[in-house]
Amino acid sequence: MTVRGLVAENGAAAMRRRSSNSSGDMVGWRRDWLVIPGLAVILIFFIAPLGVMVWRSLTDPSPYNYVRFADEAVYPRVLLTTLWMTSLVTLNCLLLGYPYAYLMHRVTRNWQWLLAMVVLLPFWSSLLVRTYAWTILLRDGGLINTVLIGIGVIDDPIRLMGNATGTIVGMTHVLLPFMVLPIIASMRRFDSDLSLAASGLGARPIAIFWRIFFPMSLPGVMAGCLLVFVLAVGFYITPAILGGRTAFFSMLIVVQVSRLLEFGFGSALGIILLAVILVIIALGSKLVRLDDLVGHSGR
């Protein structure tokens, strides 16, 4: 059997395991009843307000809100900038997150625990605090510039915040766990017998990594990218503090709603952002099983 065949076989086995798992012990109707409270919460607190927003964007004062978005060059432009910066953040998270997850996968259990703590630590402090902490490192007189000037690498401080750099650094830090966790979940599913088999068949470590391990971790990579991208598009606090002269789409919405009280146009901007996210999720879902998003291991 070829390595490729082995990979396919392993995948199919995982699928079988999953399908046999999903039909639980509970009788159908009793299981369905349990859905109702959760569904009610979603309906009342998410779907209904969303409906109000859609209605408002079309009637306050009119559907012209959407024309206005397209008519003024600045709004599409800010949306594109936001998507571009979000892509960069996702790429950064991937470049940092994948090796980190791989390291976590390879080390012993104690080290694994430590590395997981390190990546999860930021979750336990406020977003605002973390973002302000970055200003201490990134400002002109901050730690990084002081050290670089001190050891003679640069003469004048380089601008690390108040521009796109600051936003991207800050957001990458905040979103990194969302990349690492799905990737590590998908690496855990990897059957180490496959590597043994491959090396038995004469594959070198590099080949085993690129031709077997990496392709099998791709579902986690895709899930991580999708998660990070979707979360990043709606970011507000980090770009507002570290971004300086950069406009992020969420800031436009805040100005419309809470400064100018243009609820209709603000709603329209929100709906447009939501539509963009839905399109991304729709495209992404062709590549990602939703299971991978929540790190479900299938075992």
Partner: peptide, 8 residues
């Protein structure tokens, strides 16, 4: 102001 921030 937004246009200015966005570099236009």
């Amino acid at each position: 102001f937004t246009e200015w921030l966005a570099g236009m």
